[in-house]
Amino acid sequence: MLDGTPEPDFPEDGLPGHREWAAKVADALAEEVRMPRGHEWPAGAERPVGDLAADPEEAEGEWAKAAGAADADTYLGHAGAGRHVTDPYVSVTARHALGLATTPPEYDEEAGRDTDGGGMKV
């Protein structure tokens, strides 16, 4: 969801579209938080999975504030904070507690060139 941004590229040139997009990001993050919290986990995984939902929850709050921003500077502040708060490495602890793989995949260095059907080296 964060890969694409609305046109025009800069919120200064199209704040309404950016605010609408920020609301969609906030909604997606709220769902990302709801899903793990709405499930029962083994005792050793409850805390790591709960921790996994903390970053998206904080990010969701920032994106919701960006969606309600009155000006581009306020929007940029909250959108930047929403992007910054997400730590992809938090998932390693939760994945380990659930007995899942914890080694991130290696991606091809040549962006845009898919050499093995998935863009990842296996």
Rank of each mutant, 00 (worst) to 15 (best):
A22L: 03
A22G: 07
A22T: 00
A22Q: 08
A23E: 13
A23G: 15
K24T: 03
K24Q: 13
K24F: 09
V25H: 02
V25N: 01
A26M: 13
D27I: 10
D27A: 14
A28S: 12
L29M: 03
L29H: 03
L29G: 06
L29W: 00
A30C: 10
A30T: 13
E31P: 09
E32H: 11
E32P: 00
V33H: 05
V33L: 07
R34L: 06
M35R: 15
P36A: 07
P36M: 08
G38R: 05
G38I: 01
H39Y: 02
H39L: 03
E40P: 00
E40T: 12
E40D: 14
W41K: 12
P42N: 05
A43G: 08
G44S: 13
A45W: 04
E46K: 11
E46C: 03
R47W: 10
R47A: 15
R47V: 15
P48E: 05
P48D: 02
V49N: 08
G50P: 01
D51L: 15
L52P: 07
L52D: 05
A54G: 09
D55R: 01
P56W: 03
E58C: 10
A59S: 14
A59F: 07
G61V: 09
E62G: 01
W63D: 05
A64K: 04
A64G: 08
A66H: 12
G68I: 04
A69Q: 07
A69E: 10
A70Y: 00
A70R: 15
A70E: 15
A70I: 00
D71W: 00
D71A: 07
